[in-house]
Amino acid sequence: MMTNLFSTFDPSTNIMNLSLNWMSTFMGLLMIPMTFWLIPSRFMIIWINMIMTLHKEFKTLLGSFNHKGSTFIFISLFSFILFNNFMGLFPYIYTSTSHMSMTLTLALPLWLSFMMFGWINHTQHMFAHLVPQGTPPILMPFMVCIETISNLIRPGTLAVRLAANMIAGHLLLTLLGNTGPMMNSMLISILIITQLLLLTLEFAVSIIQSYVFAILSTLYSSEVI
């Protein structure tokens, strides 16, 4: 039962045996160039305002060590995850962000680059981060262990949080959808309303999770400077 249930997240969409599972991730590249040639629409104005709001927020989080354009790596990350989350809401489209192979690929190199930068350029500052201010001397060895473990699991928590939140909603929609054929017309109408409400919730989760991923990445980067 469980194998069949989770296999819905591994569709075998193909053309002439060429797998198209990850095609939804690259579909955005076909749409992006159009925005440079068309007269800005209301949608583009909303998107630009949203990017500017994120830029100001990330700039505040990064603090004094904020080079020109440093926030845009996190804005690009937010946009990329948001697009993939939205693509996964369409029927018969493979949700790439519900897989650890995708989320860990985003989180691990980002965290690793922050760590390398911090330990190479600000070694003393990184050692100071292992012991929070005001820690009693007797607890210092334990705090170093706890801080080290919490630092090491950061890419894992980033990846798991995004994948788990995306897979949970889709799994619930699949489970409820599978019960449809066994229901009468009255219950089916209730099921459709429930599915629409869940889809609205998934829409919100898609935005929230991409924002959380980007904001936590920004916070982790601000700690190594």
Rank of each mutant, 00 (worst) to 15 (best):
L158W: 01
L5M: 04
L5E: 12
L110P: 03
V212P: 01
I81R: 12
T60C: 07
A163F: 02
N66C: 15
M116Q: 06
Q209W: 02
L198E: 00
R161G: 09
R161A: 13
I120D: 07
H122L: 03
M52S: 12
F78A: 06
M31P: 09
L219W: 07
S206E: 13
M23L: 15
L191Q: 13
A163R: 03
R42K: 13
N165Q: 13
V144G: 08
A107L: 05
G69V: 04
P155S: 09
T135N: 05
M27C: 13
M183A: 01
F78Q: 06
T60N: 13
P141K: 03
I81S: 08
K68H: 14
L199K: 12
L30S: 10
N14E: 08
L187T: 10
N21H: 01
V160K: 10
F65Y: 11
L197G: 15
M27Y: 13
F90E: 13
M183R: 02
T174Y: 11
L187D: 10
T194K: 12
L29N: 10
M116S: 08
H122F: 02
L187H: 11
G177S: 10
H122T: 03
Q209L: 08
K59Y: 07
T8Q: 14
Q209M: 15
L30P: 05
T3P: 00
L130N: 00
V205N: 10
S64L: 09
L196K: 13
